[in-house]
Amino acid sequence: MADIRRRMWSVAGLLAAATLSSGLLTTAANASDRDALTAKVPPIVGGQPAKIADHPWVVYLTDTQGNQFCGGTLAKANKIVTAAHCVSGEKPELVQVVAGREDKQTSEGKVAKVTGIWVHPNFQNANSGADVAVLTLDQELQQQPLAVAEKGDTSLYETGKTSTVLGWGATAEGGQASQTLQKAEVPLVSDQECQKAYPQYKSDAMVCAGLPQGGVDSCQGDSGGPLVVENKLIGIVSTGNGCARPNAPGIYTRVATYHDDVQAQLGS
């Protein structure tokens, strides 16, 4: 599998990224990254505005300067589930979580500091699986958490099942980041079809979602955000070949596979 990660810069790298021209990515690997973007780099492709009141558990991650670089899901009052590649190697004090804020230009909601970062021990990169992390916050948030898919939730992963992905990422490949929360509905793709698009696809670690003709997808800046089916977190925005390309569905972390590990971090 080619380098199709959706995260480009580390949190510290956002400062250097600010010197680049708006929306321009400088390397081939960066051009298909889906997460560490400044507010000037694009949201979900083919989506529509979403109300934070309808999705109170969706959050976004920022550096200490307030630059958004990934998404996440509130799974417990003080715990956030996100992608490992969003925070691997980062120091907790350099990451913040913003909850209850639909428009990034406002001061609504709550900004929480991160006191701990757990990255799945099997994580190497977004292409190899185990792309899941849990953040511990310095406070308990008032927003309603989202349930995490369990190993027995096989029906939630049925081919063709409609899923919802949310985020503040790019609205077009190489485009600008959304200032407001976006959502899109995409059908789950069979393991066989995803294997055709990505030969190294791992069905036990990943799940794909998208349309054969493309046009609807998560994109840069959406990494770590939720893929939801029937009010459960079944996937985490992880990787993909560009954004919304034909026959190139988005790849998401298969949350049910890692339920026990995540639950251990969430506690009782």
Score class of each variant (00 low, 15 high):
Gln213Ala: 14
Leu188Trp: 01
Leu181Gly: 03
Arg6Pro: 01
Asp54Arg: 05
Asn247Arg: 13
Lys40Asn: 15
Val228Asp: 04
Leu137Ile: 11
Gly174Lys: 07
Pro92Lys: 12
Val11Arg: 11
Ala12Met: 14
Thr257Pro: 04
Ala130His: 10
Gly66Tyr: 08
Gln192Trp: 13
Arg245Glu: 12
Ser21Phe: 09
Lys202Gly: 08
Asn78Ala: 13
Asp217Met: 03
Cys194Leu: 01
Lys76Asp: 05
Glu93Gln: 14
Lys202Arg: 15
Ser88His: 11
Pro56Asn: 08
Gln213Leu: 05
Lys91Glu: 15
Val132Glu: 01
Lys51Pro: 00
Phe123Met: 05
Lys183Pro: 00
Asn127Pro: 00
Cys219Tyr: 02
Asp138Leu: 07
Glu158Phe: 06
Arg34Val: 06
Leu156Pro: 07
Pro92Asn: 11
Gly160Asp: 05
Ile234Ala: 13
Ala77Met: 03
Lys79Thr: 10
Gln213Trp: 00
Ala197Phe: 10
Ile251Glu: 04
Ala83Ser: 08
Val255Cys: 03
Asn125Gly: 07
Ala112Leu: 01
Asp138Gly: 12
Thr27Asp: 05
Gln182Thr: 01
Ser238Arg: 02
Gly160Pro: 05
Trp57Leu: 04
Thr19Tyr: 15
Ser22His: 14
Lys79Phe: 09
Asp103Cys: 01
Ser88Phe: 08
Leu135Lys: 12
Gly129Arg: 00
Gln65Leu: 14
Gln142Ile: 11
Leu188His: 03
Val237Asn: 04
Lys151Asn: 06
Ala244Glu: 04
Ala53Arg: 05
Ala36Ser: 15
Asp217Ser: 12
Ala28Cys: 02
Glu193Thr: 12
Val41Pro: 00
Cys208Tyr: 05
Ala39Asn: 13
Ser223Val: 09
Ala133Gln: 06
Asn67Tyr: 12
Ala133His: 07
Leu137Ser: 11
Met8Asn: 11
Pro212Met: 06
Lys196Ile: 03
Asn241Phe: 15
Val95Phe: 09
Ala84Asn: 04
Ala177Lys: 10
Leu227Glu: 10
Ile44His: 07
Ala16Met: 14
Gly23Leu: 09
